[in-house]
């Protein structure tokens, strides 16, 4: 769906994106994570054709996006700051979008409006932050996009609203195979819904992984031995990414599938052995460390 190659973008000769690559599959929900100022917004604005890349390519369905009306008809973009024209009600904005987007669906509009319980006569400026976001989702989804580019859409929203919004996004992903790129500075906001995560760092995407794959290759275990020799032998293995000792218990982060690890370790007869759940954040911290970044350089 989206292929970004060698993207460069500078402001006043200062590069914000420098040789960035990215791949987004059709129908996936791609979480774009990085600290504030990492260039997430700049990347998204390049993808929606607001900015023109200095160099590199952004192909959506194989076509350049900048000044490409056909492609842009199929993209819905939600900026980080909420926007509507001054003094416009939801209905006014709907009328405007209806005139602009050829795929506008009044049916969809009525349906989502009912689900969200929005009053279309209210001026958007007067809505609360959460309501504004909902109103924007109502408008964007009614354009029946193939691709949604969402810049920090759920950050700072209360859990109820967040859940509601996620539900309506996922419905379209499932029904119409809509693709979503969603950014956040907080990995925790995204981990329950995204199937792919890209982490931005130093003007690039440094890691881009499918979550299923990640979850299966990094495992956290808790292990204790009576036999110091067995312990020494295990700790010397090169698939261990990190280790921590608490009393006579070792907590290890290891690379490899859970089944293999279980078989291997149980063969050494440990006194205690447990596989523990890993948060997405922890997985990324170890991935980043392995890729040569300091722990405290990472997210959150």
């Amino acid at each position: 769906m989206i292929e970004v190659r060698g993207l460069k973008k500078s402001f006043e000769k200062l590069y914000v994106l420098d040789g960035l690559d990215m791949n987004v599959n059709k129908g996936s929900i791609y979480g774009l994570v990085g600290p504030n100022g990492a260039g997430k917004t700049t990347l998204i604005k390049n993808m929606v054709g607001i900015y023109k890349p200095d160099a590199g390519q952004i192909k959506i369905n194989g076509e350049d996006v900048y000044e490409n009306v056909d492609i842009k008809q199929r993209i819905a973009y939600m900026p980080d700051e909420n926007t509507s024209f001054k003094n416009y009600s939801i209905k006014d904005m709907a009328k405007f979008y209806k005139g602009i987007y050829i795929n506008w669906s009044s049916e969809k509009y009525e349906k989502v409006k009912a689900v969200l319980g929005l009053d279309e006569k209210i001026k958007i400026d007067k809505l609360s932050k959460g309501m504004k976001k909902q109103a924007m989702f109502l408008l964007l989804l009614s354009t029946m996009p193939e691709l949604m580019l969402l810049d920090e859409p759920v950050d700072g929203l209360d859990p109820m609203v967040r859940k509601k919004i996620w539900n309506i996004i996922i419905e379209d992903v499932v029904e119409r195979e809509m693709t979503v790129v969603i950014s956040s500075h907080n990995l925790r906001e995204l981990e329950d819904f995204c199937d792919t995560i890209g982490i931005m760092k130093g003007k690039k995407i440094v890691i881009e992984k499918e979550l299923d794959e990640l979850r299966s290759v990094i495992t956290k275990i808790q292990v204790a031995f009576d036999n110091e020799a067995s312990r020494e032998e295990l700790l010397a293995k090169d698939y261990i990414l990190a280790k921590e000792t608490k009393g006579n218990m070792d907590i290890l982060i290891v690379r490899g599938s859970q089944d293999e690890i279980r078989n291997e370790i149980e063969a050494t007869k440990p006194k205690l052995f447990d596989i523990m759940p890993l948060t997405l954040e922890e997985i990324f911290i170890y991935e980043m460390e392995e890729a040569g970044y300091e722990k405290n350089e990472l997210i959150v």
Binding site: K45, V48, G49, I50, E67, V69, D70, I71, K72, Q73, I75, Y77, P79, E81, T83, F85, I100, Y101
Partner: peptide
């Protein structure tokens, strides 16, 4: 106004 120009230029209309 960054907010408005972003909306306008994200629309599927040539500049």
């Amino acid at each position: 106004d960054r907010k408005y120009i972003d909306i306008i230029h994200s629309l599927p209309i040539k500049r």
